[in-house]
């Protein structure tokens, strides 16, 4: 077996080094915290508000709709494909932790929902929703949710 490094191999090594360097530069830009509460503040609260209340007719509330959506497979898929999640700078693990932290902090009983996993987030967020409002309306209509949720139908 030859110990010589061939040209393609050396290019591969150089490429790997460059990739590692760029990953480091990106991670140093804005480190993701290990605390989901802090990640919520830094990555979500700017639009959804400090408590997740949203802005009427502008930014969807999380407090009412999120606990309702996560109880069905379709709802969970929707949550993980909305622009705020699909485009988030948070990692898959970071997204899962923030969502689980938010749900655990809300009044939702733990028995009523399954925590998100990084794998579930990774699978779903790869396919961002194109018609978010339409998907949201369809979901709420299909789920026959209470009138409390139905008033959050248009965003």
């Amino acid at each position: 077996m030859s110990t010589l490094i061939t040209a393609p191999t050396s290019f591969r090594i150089l490429f790997l080094i460059l990739c590692l360097q760029s990953t480091e530069a990106i991670s140093l830009e804005r480190p993701e915290s290990t605390q989901p509460a802090q990640n919520y503040l830094l990555f979500c609260a700017g639009c959804h508000g400090l408590t997740g209340s949203g802005v009427p007719n502008k930014v969807p509330t999380l407090t009412r709709t999120l606990p309702a959506f996560v109880k069905s497979a379709e709802g969970r898929d929707f949550v993980l494909r909305v622009p705020g999640v699909a485009n988030s700078a948070l990692s898959d693990q970071g997204v899962a932790q923030v969502l689980n932290w938010f749900l655990a902090s809300s009044a939702t009983s733990l028995a009523e929902w399954q925590p998100f996993t990084a794998e579930e987030v990774q699978r779903a967020r790869r396919m961002p929703l194109m018609s978010v409002s339409q998907s949201r309306r369809q979901l709420i209509n299909k789920m026959e949710l209470s009138s409390e949720i139905s008033r959050d139908i248009d965003y």
């Binding site: 802090q38 503040l41 830094l42 609260a45 700017g46 639009c47 508000g49 802005v55 502008k58 930014v59």
Partner: peptide, 21 residues
């Protein structure tokens, strides 16, 4: 404004980073 952008600033007085809206 109800929507905003949130980041961090370093306070040289106590050497800590603060979350700022």
């Amino acid at each position: 404004s109800p929507i905003t952008w949130i980041g961090t600033c370093h306070n040289p007085g106590d050497g800590r980073d603060y979350i700022v809206s």
